[in-house]
Structure formats: C-alpha cells, structure tokens
Design a protein around this nucleic acid. Sequence first.
RNA 1: CGGGGUAUCGUAUAAUGGUAGUAUCCUUGCUUUGGGAGCAUGUGGCCUAGGUUCGAUUCCUAGUACCCCGACCA
Length: 415
Amino acid sequence: MRQSQLFTKTQKTPPKEDGINAQLLMQAGFIHKEMAGVYSFLPLGLLVLNKIIGIIREEMNAIGGQELLLASLQDASPWQKTGRWDDNKVDIWFKTKLKNNTEVGLANTHEEPITNLLRHHISSWKDLPLYPYQFQTKFRNELRAKNGLLRTREFVMKDLYSFSKNQEEHDEFYEKSKEAYGKIFSRLGIGEHTLLTYASGGSFSEYSHEFQAICEAGEDTIYVCQKCNIAVNKEIIEKQSTCPNCNEGNLIEKRAIEVGNIFPLGTRFADTLGLAFTNEEGKSKAPIMGSYGIGPGRAMATIVELSRDKKGIIWPKEVAPFAVHILSLPGGKEDGEDVYKELQDNGIDALYDDREETRVGEKLADADLLGIPLRIITSAKNHDTGSIEISMRDGSRGQEYVKKSEALKFLLANI
RNA sequence: CGGGGUAUCGUAUAAUGGUAGUAUCCUUGCUUUGGGAGCAUGUGGCCUAGGUUCGAUUCCUAGUACCCCGACCA
C-alpha cells in the first residue's frame, strides 16, 4: 500500500492514555479509542489483528477445529437453566430488550449457546468428537476497563469448545490444545515470555491452564518454577507451595498477562442443557466438554508491550501489518517505485512511503513508530551505486546494501 | 462497587472573575532535504445544566465523561 493513500496519521505527541500498548497503537494510528475500554481498529490495526487471527485459525484447524460464528444477541433461557443469567452470579452482562420487552443479553461467552445449539446436531457417538470454534465479539461490562487493549468491554475472542465421547478422548484433545497454544504464542512472537500456568480447575478437574506472558504491564501475579519453566497462579499457590509438575518449591513471583486459557468443563453444561448422544452400547451419555480461549486484541497489546523500544513498535514477522516498509528518500523515487512494483508482482506485502512532501526525519521516525520488521531505503546516494539499503527494525542486522537487481532475491530469503 | 482526581483546538498543555495563550498537527507561500529543519501565513478550543455575580472558562451545586488506587475479573 502507498503510504500517501493511508488515511491514518501518526502523532508526534503521544496521546495521554493508560497502557503503553494503547498509547503506541494510537500514536501510530492502528486503533482509535471510542470510550473507556472500547477501541476501534483502523486499517493498520486490522491488518495486525487479522494476522493474529489467521495464525490462531491455522492452528485450530490443525487440531480439528471447525470454524463457525455464533450470535451475539443471547436468548435468556439457556443461561437461566445454568444459573448464569442472574446479575448477582455474572456481574458483567450487558442486557437489553427487544421492542416487545423480551430481555436479551450481549454474549460474554458461549458455553450455553454452543451446547444448546448442538442438541440439534449431535445424537450418536459417531458425531463426536467435535471442536467448533469462532472469532466473535464478546461484551463484558467491566467495572473498570484499564491498560488499553488488555482489559476492554468489547473484544474479539477466539473460543473453541470441545465435545468428547469420554474422558480419555477429552484428555487427548486437551493436551493437543496445549501444544497448539504453544505454537500460536511462539508464532505471535511472544513464545519466549509465555508460560503454561496451572490454575484452579473448578469442579471437574484439579487444574485448568492459563498461558501467561511475563510482562510488567500484566494484571496477574504468577509463580514461576525455575526448574520446569511453567508457572502456577495465585489460586494454586494458596493451596500448595510447590510446582505441580516437579513438586519442588523454588517459585519466583512475576507479573504476567493472561493471553490464553484452556478449561475442562466436564458434563456440567451438557447435563443442564440436555445435550446427549447415544453410545456404542445404546446408552445415552453426556459429552465431556472443554473451553479454550484466546483474545486476539489482548494478544496484540501484549506483543506491543513486549516488543518495542523508545522509538516505537517492533512487530514480530508473522503479525506485522506489512512484511516490508519501503522508504523513498530524496532522489529515490524511481527506485522506490520499481522495488514496490516488483514486490507487489511477487506477492510481498509492502508499505511504500511515497509521500513527496514529507521530510526524511519524519519518514524515518514514522517507520520506527509503525514497526514494520524490514525496511528498504531508496535514495539518491543509493541510486548512484545501483543499490537499495536494507535494515531490520529490531536492529538484528545492520544496514546492508544490495544491488537493485538482487533485491527481490535478498528479500525472499529474509522475510 | 468503595475512595480520590481531572475536564481548555485533532494531539499535548498554560493562564485567567472582564475579548483564552503556547507547542505540535493541519492550510498557504518561500527557503530547505539521510533522523520530526527554518521563516512567514491562515484555520481551529473553555464538557452539559443550574446557581452566585454587573459580568463565570475560572467560584458553587448537580449531571456526564475520563483517569488513578482498591475490590472484582465466573
């Protein structure tokens, strides 16, 4: 895309905003704040969000997930059956009314609707296991939104629900989901910081699991086992002071962001809502359920918190809005156009700073702020030597000069 | 939900009971051109409603919004 056509602007003075993530994302023009805890995604922000969603989708499909899209408007009755309609039980509901006065809710999660829906589609053991998932907007009426995109009142969530024939099948998928989550956070560029964390399992299992990215901006406190590189959360450490994995006690306290969680649900929802299948012996059984969540927006905020410097964001390769940022400095227009066209023809996403009135310093400062991983500079100086100049936003490699005719080959090898 | 604070151009901020200023952004022009350059130029603002006052952006009350601390986060 040509930067001269991009309608969003960067700001020289950062907005006064809580959370470095929102501050940088707003300053760079990725998001817009609508109100406390509610953000809109602008073109650059949506590109990143969609990259994140794409990665999650690939990994969910790889373990047998089937994508669907459930409704946001919720009928009260399934929630009333499970006891989760009551505002005293679940205090984050947004509720509203139809014209005929029927009360409806804006979904904050989807265990009830998915379970209820599957009553129409599951009847035999042959229909299981089933792993439906979605990317869907959740509404949660938080008493206090904070930390930018880390705690919002409206956010897209990937939620997968597993329906298994028996405990063994459930456990097998649960373990697979752990691995898939590991891959996701690694591809998002925060794998090194993200630890599997034991959390309370509720009534159906000893543990559930969170994926906690160690970060000072986080709201959670976790306790990291120095030996296993896993962690436990507050709930667990209050009950036991040792690592559940190795049983040793050397646990270090850290702040962290919960970027994902997986949770065994047993048969609670199926029992209450009447979801059952006929097993091989002809008996009616409730499927074993689990839920598996990741918030792409929160993941995006976490990436920004963990991957930045004084000058701006440093997007990891797989989530960057563009693979390459071409800056045409004075005397570099001709080369800039050529390189941009060549990249386009070869399917490489590039942002091309073709702005003619913009000064060099501003272009460079903007590029630092936007954080696209690989930068190409064309200029009079480079033109004279028949080269383009390539550098990495993260500073992992210094400036390299490549013959213009070799540029594509070089890029294909490095993005 | 408890406690505290703030509200002034798009952004960041200042002052003031008597016609609201700066920086940045934006317009226009000239000079510049490898790290937000210079000069000039123009546009744009006191959250809402009451009250006190000759006069309120300023003081008071209420509302609303936002922020912070805490609690909460199934």
